[in-house]
Design a protein around this nucleic acid. Structure first.
Lengths: 241, 241
DNA sequence: CGACTAATAGTCACTACGACCATAAAGGGG
DNA sequence: CCCCTTTATGGTCGTAGTGACTATTAGTCG
């Protein structure tokens, strides 16, 4: 009875399918998450991950891209990093009805749109470390997303997705430190990044940027590489979960 | 309009939600996949991944475990490795109706149940390399599952899930070689595995097993560790996709 | 008994990396 | 103007991990 003769003969129950987005950014040395405040029950007044229903003619990915644009107010979200995390389908996760949600993780570079765009109840950036209990099972989704992003920094060039088009190695290092919550040795980080071909490429025009005091730093762009071999592992926490 | 005032006011379309399983095993030095032959249109006569609908009162994970037991005919599937892969939701992936499927990857040790159990159209093991086009988008799901399993062998102790309770290091190495499709250097593999604390532990009673000719090998059990630090990387294919 | 097979042991060189120290180039305060 | 602070950048040194090999051991097969 696993594969029924025809789907219409099978007494399956239809589910609502939604997408939920864990959108991260690194701003001023802190990890921030895009959240919306719920207006009605259940969980009225609580913060929740932005999301919405998957429409009849779109995939979960398309719904996620659409929601990303709507919630951030950014018109051109292409170029941002968006990846599927996993699907949460526990029967009781929404008390009103059976809702299956496909969770996504997205990364935002700093510069644009300090807070929401034109809509009424737009989303806001909150510090990852100062987030109380979220609505539904969004705490777990957010924790899974954070772990995934942290892990991907180790073996992919994903960190540049948190940076503006041109950035210093110090800014890139701060992305790692902020997401991982661990300080890194600056010369060693520099050596590793520059030794990985295609991770970053220096902006040729001897361009330099100064955010304040200290020696001006060279500017880099994201390179063509997508993966890191060998990986850039976080400081030894023996058994990682 | 992203988060409606109430779900019942929102014109969402309900979807059917299914699970699909990519179940792997290593038998006789080949990678094999559990498949079922479709009996009716669409894709009648084609092979497909085992799967089925998520029932109203169960999560996708529970449905996957249930299907795993049903399709393999094995009563006790606890202890097997089963993990969620990702969700496939393209609108046209099932020509009959809108079906969103949560895909899982599962690993089977060799020994048990050479072919299906008691049901009528039971599943069969087919060589991974000799699989023609599958039904629906199952080729892509299977490819994604294979890539995921291969990647997880690098940084987890997952390979022991392909082995019987007691195994030789040669058998463990064959798991890696079969999944990756690459030969490995035997002394180096041995050194790496034994140098990782908690990966395997030797069966104390000087127990030895011989499958035929050659020096008898020591027997090992899976250890307590779950992750590999540092990872056991596949032979250098510079940029991995 | 000798050929063959597979497991196990050990060597050597090179790479990658953690922990440092040193220098260069900017601004700020006395 | 000099010194101190700050940040970027350039190195060194020792060690762990690993790829590429060679050698030895302990069985089966003919």
């Amino acid at each position: 009875m696993t594969v029924p003769e025809g789907y219409d003969k099978y007494a399956y129950e239809p589910f609502a399918v939604t997408v939920d987005l864990a959108v991260f950014t690194v701003r001023a040395g802190t990890l921030q998450v895009l959240l919306v405040e719920r207006g009605q029950e259940p969980y009225a007044g609580r913060w929740a991950l932005p999301g919405g229903f998957v429409l009849p003619d779109e995939s979960a990915e398309e719904a996620a891209w659409r929601e990303l644009a709507e919630e951030t107010g950014v018109t051109d979200v292409s170029g941002l990093h968006l990846e599927q995390l996993r699907t949460y389908s526990e029967p009781g996760r929404d008390p009103r009805m059976r809702v299956v949600t496909v969770a996504f993780a997205a990364l935002f570079p700093d510069a644009p749109v300090p807070h929401g765009g034109g809509d009424a109840a737009q989303a806001q950036w909150l510090r990852f470390n100062a987030i109380g209990p979220l609505a539904f099972d969004h705490d777990r989704i957010l924790a899974d997303a954070h772990e995934r992003v942290g892990a991907k920094l180790e073996y992919t060039c994903l960190a540049t997705s948190f940076c503006p088009p041109e950035f210093t190695l110090g800014e890139l290092q701060q992305v790692y430190e902020t997401v991982w919550g661990t300080p890194l040795d600056r010369p060693n980080f520099r050596r590793k990044v520059l030794a990985t071909p295609g991770f970053v490429e220096q902006v040729p025009g001897a361009a330099r940027l100064t955010g304040g005091r200290g020696k001006p730093a060279a500017l880099y762009r994201a390179g063509v590489a997508t993966t890191l071999h060998p990986p850039l592992l976080r400081p030894t926490m023996e058994g990682r979960p």
